[in-house]
Amino acid sequence: MTLVKFNPEKRNSSLLPGFSDVFDSIFNDTFFNDRMVTRVPAVNISETENNYHVELAAPGLKKEDFKLNLERNNLTISVEQSSNHEDSQKNYSKREYSYSSFVRSFTLPDSADDNQIEATYTNGVLRIDIAKREEAKTVRRQIEIK
């Protein structure tokens, strides 16, 4: 069963009142629109004193599905997954996370140390830690007031 929002206050000039409300409800839903626009996993990027952190949410994959490449200053995360025979036998009524292939690329800042990049994949999240160069690390000290 699907719930459809109807707006009785809206004056429609169409021949079938409420007909356009059905499509407005479906196509103006932000959750639906977000999925129509992009079929790549969401990413969080953060920074600590010593590292940059990239977290990519990609449930349903295995760590072997990912390929991480660094060329010049571009970090590329890609997945090329063949269709799973087990999944093809299932009859999904709704399937929101299925990535057969995608590519995400990020330009590393000059302060990143491209020789110290580590990646782990646990609980559906790919975590990439990129160390900062020594000269880029924040210097903290107490300043005496005279």
Rank of each mutant, 00 (worst) to 15 (best):
F19H: 15
D65C: 04
I26N: 15
P17I: 05
V79F: 08
A42L: 10
P17F: 02
N44W: 02
V54Y: 14
I26F: 07
I145L: 12
V54L: 10
P109Y: 00
E80S: 08
R95C: 09
D24I: 03
K132L: 03
S20L: 01
E134C: 02
E49R: 08
F27W: 11
R104F: 00
N7I: 05
L68G: 11
K146T: 15
T107K: 08
E118D: 06
N74K: 12
L126Y: 04
R104G: 03
A119P: 00
E118L: 06
Y52E: 08
V22Q: 15
E86H: 14
D114E: 08
R95I: 14
D110R: 07
A42H: 09
L68T: 07
R127A: 12
I117L: 03
L70F: 02
E49W: 01
R133A: 10
V43D: 08
E96L: 08
S111Y: 02
D24E: 10
N115V: 00
N69Q: 09
L61I: 08
T48S: 15
L16W: 03
D113A: 10
S78H: 06
D87T: 11
R95M: 15
E9P: 04
H53I: 15
L61N: 10
N84Q: 09
S101T: 06
S46Q: 06
N51E: 11
L61V: 02
N51I: 02
D129E: 03
S20K: 08
F66Q: 11
Q89D: 12
N115Q: 09
A58I: 04
R133E: 10
L3H: 15
R35F: 07
K62Y: 00
N69F: 02
